[in-house]
Simulated scan of single mutants.
Amino acid sequence: MSDWKPKRFWKEATVVADADGHSVALDGRPVRTPAKALLVLPTRAMAEAVAAEWDAQGKVVDPESMPVTRSANAAIDKVRPQHAEVAEMLAAYGDSDLLCYRADHPDELVARQSAAWDPPLDWAETELSARLLPAAGVIHRPQDPRALAALGRRVHAMSPYHLAAFHDLVSMSGSLILGFAAALDWDRPEAIWQLSRLDELWQEEIWGVDDEARTLAERKGKAFMHAKRFYDLAG
């Protein structure tokens, strides 16, 4: 296995504004994505965040310390060429949304799910014109096509940068509604993330904490917070 790692070759990362948006240059040379596209960003705030990540590198480049750059690369190289497919995949979460699959026992869990998950569903009805209905059990129950269509239109209207962030907000929480709730500031992202983990937290109360599962949850939680930050940076 090769031990080669990319070395820092530049002195300064700067933000460059032009008609297409904002880009980042390393000693005057524009940064490109892994697919060799120009790294053109929709807002100055995002470009400044990317430039800061490049400036923070030491002698050896560590891609893991550059989350905004990685997300921007994904938006340009992966999401933009297949925008409709990604949007359709995410919109499909609405028909099997985490918030709509409820326990039928024990009573304490039933009450806890209702208290935690009914409010975001109520918010979605008011703010997104889409009412999703919860049901007990794990058998799929189709949602109102009109509600799903309203949610789908919003997903398809997102820019590639918003959609790249929204992908993680939805897929990590398992909920299209919680993805919208985080993106549109219904509550703090930390609180929304905890809503997505309600069943896991219940199991921890009953059976105790599994260290491996807790480590994975913490990693996913950090990624969820980054996705929210990237969504906001996209303007």
Rank of each mutant, 00 (worst) to 15 (best):
A227C: 00
G208Q: 03
P42W: 14
Y93M: 06
K7P: 08
M89N: 08
A135L: 00
S196K: 08
A103L: 03
S159R: 06
A227I: 10
R141G: 05
A227F: 11
T215A: 14
L169P: 08
R229A: 05
A35F: 11
S96H: 14
R32L: 14
T126P: 13
L41V: 03
A191G: 04
H83M: 00
D118K: 07
Q82D: 14
S171N: 15
M46S: 02
G235I: 06
R29Y: 13
L128A: 03
R112E: 09
R197Q: 15
A72T: 07
D232A: 06
N73Q: 14
A217W: 11
E218C: 01
M1T: 07
Y101A: 06
E12I: 14
S96N: 01
E53F: 02
A217T: 10
V31R: 02
L148C: 03
K11Q: 09
H83C: 06
L216D: 14
T126E: 13
N73R: 05
A136K: 13
Q57R: 02
K36R: 15
V138S: 13
A164C: 14
L201G: 04
D199K: 13
A130T: 07
D187C: 01
E108V: 11
V15Q: 01
L41C: 00
I192K: 04
W207D: 15
V86W: 08
A136P: 11
G28H: 09
D62I: 09
W4E: 13
H105E: 12
S171K: 08
S171D: 11
Y231R: 01
V61H: 00
T33K: 00
K78V: 06
A150C: 03
T69N: 05
E85L: 12
P42I: 13
S65I: 00
A223V: 10
Q57C: 09
V61G: 08
W186Y: 15
S2H: 01
R8H: 03
L90V: 07
V170I: 10
D118Q: 10
W202C: 02
V50A: 12
E218F: 08
Q113R: 03
F180P: 05
A183R: 10
P34C: 06
E212N: 13
P119T: 05
A164F: 05
A164I: 09
A47S: 05
S71W: 10
L26I: 06
W4T: 15
V79F: 03
I177R: 07
V170D: 02
W193C: 07
R188D: 15
A25K: 04
R146L: 05
P42Q: 08
V110E: 06
A116P: 05
S114H: 13
L148Q: 04
E88P: 00
P106W: 07
S71N: 10
R214H: 15
D107T: 13
D107Q: 09
A124F: 08
P42L: 05
A135D: 02
D187I: 04
D210S: 13
W123K: 00
L109A: 08
M1I: 09
K222C: 04
M225I: 07
G58H: 02
R32A: 12
P30S: 05
D62L: 05
L184R: 15
M225G: 00
C100M: 04
M225W: 06
V209W: 06
K7E: 11
